[in-house]
Structure formats: structure tokens, C-alpha cells
Design a protein around this nucleic acid. Structure first.
Lengths: 145, 145
DNA sequence: AAAATATAATCAGTATACTGAATATCAGTA
DNA sequence: TACTGATATTCAGTATACTGATTATATTTT
């Protein structure tokens, strides 16, 4: 930028990403309210349903979230009785996370809710636009890796 | 979803939006560290630089943020001496937000940092891809309005 | 084996972001 | 004018997300 101000916050990619995310997040949050789960808690369950018996660090890598953030989410999911933390006998520093009976019992219904929400969110785009959008978001996520 | 599980969290638009946002947010946060400002604090300043003398509610509408969230951001910016809250004499319920001398003095440098960051973030795309991406994010933001 | 290093999780502290309740003030009406 | 409802902000409480320090345990090096 030379002299005149050419920065426009409302056209900045970072701002648009933040606001689009927040819009989607809050809508999903509303859909999850009947189940007393938040979006990040659902995401943790979605990964554990696919593969449980992993550590908090490994869950954090899948969710792209910090160790302390995962700690809180796992603690609340355990309090809700959906998962259980056990000590790894092969490495007593680490927990192993398991989905409980109650956790498994919610899978079908919650995956349906998430599927419907994402279908609805993507419905404003053509199939070509949607795959282009997802591909561009992945390029941001994996930029510089 | 009929019988088999067809929901894939890693391909869900909401998940990709959240992770792309977080990646961009954390990179911008790092760039703002020398100035002891967070991304939302910068966004508030960016809007107030364009037009100050507005209320917290009005700033919240511009930022698409909740009244209580704005309250906290404004409080911290005031503590940093970048803005000042005055009572609106025409409506004593409302504050009027003003940028201070110190707040104005940071404008040029911080807008340069934000401009560079957003240029860099968008550089992985062609100009056509970038405008298509921004247009799609806006369609999510203003969906159902 | 002892020392140094690395790793998994937790704790303390801060910032964002929300909900719902409370407070103060304003505007329109009985 | 007193009442009713609306509005701007704040307060209390919860969840996410981070940094940096601490603790406990593993691994590697000397």
C-alpha cells in the first residue's frame, strides 16, 4: 500500500472465512441443541465413532485442535457419559479414549442430523461449485504443509 | 441416510470451513502479536477507522458479533488506549465509540499488515478462483436473509 | 545406571462467543 | 402522568481455543 488506504475489511478473505464459519457453526449448534452437544463435541464423537482407542493427542491431530482444547472437550464428553478415558498400560502418560454404549447409541441419529445440515448448507451451490469450494478450503487448510 | 453410514466428517463443508478459518485466524494472530492485538480486536479497529462515533450494537452488526462479545472487545481496546467510550447525550443507554490519537496512529501500519496477510492468503488462488471463493463465502454469510 | 531429553496430559491464565438475567433508559399508550 | 414495551449495555455462567508452566512417565544419551 502506497499512500491511499486500499485495505477493505469487508472484502478480506480472512474476514469472510471467519463470518461464513460462524454462520455455519451457529446453525449447526442450534440443530445439536436437542442432544445437548456442541459442534466441537460432535466432531470429537464423529472421529471416535470412526476409530476409538486413540489418545487425546491423536484426536487433536484429527480435529486440528490443541492439546488443552481437546482436554476440555474430552472431559465434558466423559461427564456426559459418551466416552471413557482409560490409562494406556503400554504408556502410562497417555489416555486411551473409548466410546461408551451410550456414545454408540447416538451415532446413527447424530450422523443423520450432521448429514442433513451439511447437505442443506451445500444446497445453495451447484455440485461443481461445492466441490470447487471444498477443494479451495482444503488448499487453505493444508497450505505450507 | 438409509442403512449404511455415509456421513464423513472430514468431507463435511462445516468442518472444512471451521478448519480453514482456524488456519487463517492463527496465522493472522501471529502477524498481529508484535502489536499486542488479536484478530477480532483488529477487525473492530478496522471498522472504527472507517467510521467511528457509532454504538456497540452498530459495531456488532458490522462485525456480525453478539452484544456481549463486542462489550469485551471494546473494553480491552479501551484498556489499550486505542478507543474511548462516551455516553450518547441523545440516548444515555448507549455508548458512542471513538478512536483515540493512539488508535489513529496505528492505522496505516496495521492496515498494511492485514493487507499483506490477506494478499498472501489469497495468493494460492488465481484471481478468478479467489473472487469465486469470496462470492461463495458471501452466499453462506447472507444465506436466508 | 544416572542424566538429559522428549512426550502426554493437566493446570493457570487470557480472549472470543454465546445464553439468559438484570439494569437503565427511552418511546408510545391508557 | 403512570404503565407498558422496547432497546443498549452489563453481569453471571458456560464452552472453545490458545500460551506457557508443571507433572508424570518414556526414551535416549553419557
Amino acid at each position: 500500500m502506497g499512500e491511499g488506504v486500499i485495505f477493505d475489511i469487508e472484502d478480506a478473505l480472512g474476514f469472510l472465512l471467519a463470518k461464513a464459519h460462524k454462520k455455519a457453526f451457529n446453525e449447526f449448534k442450534t440443530r445439536l441443541e436437542p442432544y445437548h452437544l456442541t459442534p466441537p463435541q460432535f466432531v470429537a464423537m464423529a472421529f471416535l465413532w470412526k476409530k476409538d482407542g486413540i489418545s487425546q493427542i491423536q484426536l487433536g491431530e484429527l480435529m486440528h485442535a490443541d492439546r488443552t482444547t481437546i482436554g476440555g472437550i474430552v472431559e465434558r464428553l466423559e461427564k456426559l457419559g459418551l466416552i471413557k478415558r482409560k490409562v494406556n498400560p503400554a504408556d502410562r502418560r497417555a489416555c486411551i479414549l473409548y466410546v461408551t454404549e451410550k456414545g454408540w447409541s447416538l451415532r446413527k441419529e447424530l450422523e443423520r442430523v450432521a448429514f442433513e445440515f451439511n447437505k442443506n448448507l451445500g444446497m445453495i451451490f451447484s455440485p461443481e461449485e461445492l466441490s470447487a469450494l471444498k477443494a479451495m478450503l482444503r488448499r487453505i487448510i493444508y497450505r505450507g504443509k
